[in-house]
Write a protein that binds this DNA or RNA. Structure first.
Lengths: 217, 217, 217, 217
DNA sequence: CATGAATGAGCGTTCATTCAT
DNA sequence: GATGAATGAACGCTCATTCAT
């Protein structure tokens, strides 16, 4: 059996060594954005966090905006590659959806700062409204939509629901859960064990089987 | 048959008349926040939009922050009252959930600026993380959770899923759809007719019956 | 006998009283620009010199550039009005030219800071190259050119020289002398008495009668 | 008959070959200063224009200031040598003055960038006020003054005018004309032919013979 | 000689907030 | 209540200069 795709999402790696200043700046930016938000983050904070001189940030990046854009594009790109691999894989539709759900819901544990930035600063600022960013985020929806459409074609999934709307609901549900995690609100019954796993189970049961009680019981 | 709860959400009303300066400032604030975001909105912009001197804003509100908070609390409170009435009503569980979904999904049409502010500036800034705001938003989840729990008790809904998680998924799905509307991305098959209604139908089918194709039917 | 036009150029007036902040800022700007040059002048220097708060400068002027432009336009306009009155007056051509020469050469005594700014920051920065500023300065040449052309028509002045070139030479000569004054280089034989008057006499003798020794003497 | 001194002013020469980095930097500096002004010119712009790494500029020059100073001294020195040769030559006074006028007025054609820098960045910044630069520029005045004084002694020129003031006027007139050229304002009647030659003729007629119409002719 | 990464002081500008009228 | 002049802390950005390689 192959490794779970979740495992491909790298853990917070060792900090970039001296000499790879550009990486250090990006990593510092994520930490500071996570801590104070984009607007609250001063460029000088980021430089201090990265342990480099103020002006060097402007050697590597045009301005503060480009820092956030770059963080977004590079990390999001890496994330999408994993999603694409899930989509292209051989698993049945339900398994693919479960893998995506797990990938997203486990992400916070692995890269909490990056997920915070994603949740609070990217999906949610008006600056996000710019077409390019929308398109980039849209690629996640496209990937999930491909899973759903394939499932509809094979007959695994019902065909009377619009795939795009289903995707919106699915990703929205996951987003909501991850936001709840970030805010520290997720108080799960099973918190002793594994809250994330419970969340994955719930979302899959819900989306696959629905809420309604089945006659048999 | 009683009026749909959706109809209780007021349409963009006539602007407050001269003399009711406080109302005019709040309405102006919503428009400016919607247009430029909270950070991009200058107090002077809001005053200009309201047609008053900008020092006057500080007569009615302690500071810019309080403007956003007040907007949030007053409008959100009105919204919650409708939700609470749905919760307390006599309809079956499925109908209550449908009513909530419709209320949320139709809101953008009725109060686009307010919904934009809600979507971009409130659920999503790090400032939102403050406990009080979380609690306020949490009231929506509590209301929906009460519907779900009641349904589980009556046997209408299955009991093996945690009500809180179900709520998160449900509200998240709706949030995702409304965001998609705000961004102008919702391209529905049925766009000639009523995209919102189609969204409501999909989300209800999905959450009640699930995605899986049913063998027999 | 009427007052000399030179006398119309106001002496450094009393500083603008409190309350006329805009004027105070402009006057302070001239002093600071004269002392440190446009680039060397910090906005905070100007505010301090004017005795007002930093940000107030931006209440009255869009930015530092607009300060220099405003200084230039307002003062230069006042100067041109005097020149225009000389042009329109009844004096013979030679007297008009002498009046202009005196106006310019005496200006430094009356408004040394303003003349310094004019000499170093306006006629001479590349930013001056912008069409609008050129046109404004050009109005001085136009005024002098009108005197010359009128003199050529009445037969007072020779007609074989292009009026525009004559103007350039005339104004250039005066500019050179005033610059020399500003730099503190003018070491005149008559320095005990009135160097400026001697400069006026020389420039008029030169331009009217030429350098060549006349046979008769 | 000897070559005109004007011809000694070298045309824009071939760019310095690779390897003569110092020369290339100076030439690049002149071009960039001409294009953007001293303050607008970044050291990196100059290095890019010269095709070298910008750290190298600091091998050859102490700092940006020294670049301008060096440009000024070297080129100005070459220019002064020509002037000195005119002064020392055997021509009559009037011819010497005409030669100086021609040298200056034709310079823009031969070295437009250098003349732009001279006009806008050297005679005219407050930094120019430093004694050393004043002295250097003063050497031009001294040279012209020697011509004038010699003419007064031989009786060619009238003696009732102060030689220094005459020089100021003469050089100022030429400066004004050349500035007008640089700004693209010189609109001469004879523009089809040779505007510069017409300027030389006018300035000489003016300074030698004066503006006044002569009765007899 | 040559490179360009690294440094950091310095400055223009914004804008929320206060307050005299 | 109403106005908008006045205040000043805060921060992004530039760019001359240094220095390790």
């Amino acid at each position: 059996m192959s490794r779970s795709p979740v495992a491909e999402l790298p853990m917070k790696a060792d900090p970039a060594p001296r000499g790879r200043k550009r990486e250090r700046i990006l990593e510092a930016a994520i930490r500071v954005f996570a801590r104070r938000g984009y607007h609250g983050a001063r460029v000088s904070d980021i430089a201090a966090e990265a342990g480099i001189a103020y002006g060097l940030v402007y050697h590597y990046f045009k301005n503060k905006d480009e820092l956030l854009d770059t963080v977004f594009e590079e990390r999001w790109g890496a994330f999408l590659e994993i999603v694409d691999r899930i989509v292209a894989g051989p698993s049945p539709t339900a398994e693919k959806l479960r893998a995506v759900a797990a990938l997203i819901l486990f992400a916070y544990r692995r890269q909490p700062d990056w997920v915070k930035v994603l949740v609070f600063e990217i999906g949610r600022t008006s600056r996000f409204s710019e077409p390019e960013q929308i398109r980039t985020v849209g690629r996640l929806f496209q990937a999930v939509a491909r899973i759903v459409r394939a499932g509809q074609e094979t007959g695994e999934l019902r065909r009377d629901l619009d795939a795009e709307l289903v995707c919106l609901a699915f990703v929205g549900a996951l987003d909501s859960m991850i936001t709840s995690q970030v805010l520290g609100l997720m108080q799960l019954p099973d918190s002793a064990g594994d809250a994330d796993a419970e969340a994955v189970r719930t979302v899959m049961e819900l989306f696959l089987g629905g809420l309604l009680a089945r006659g048999g019981s």
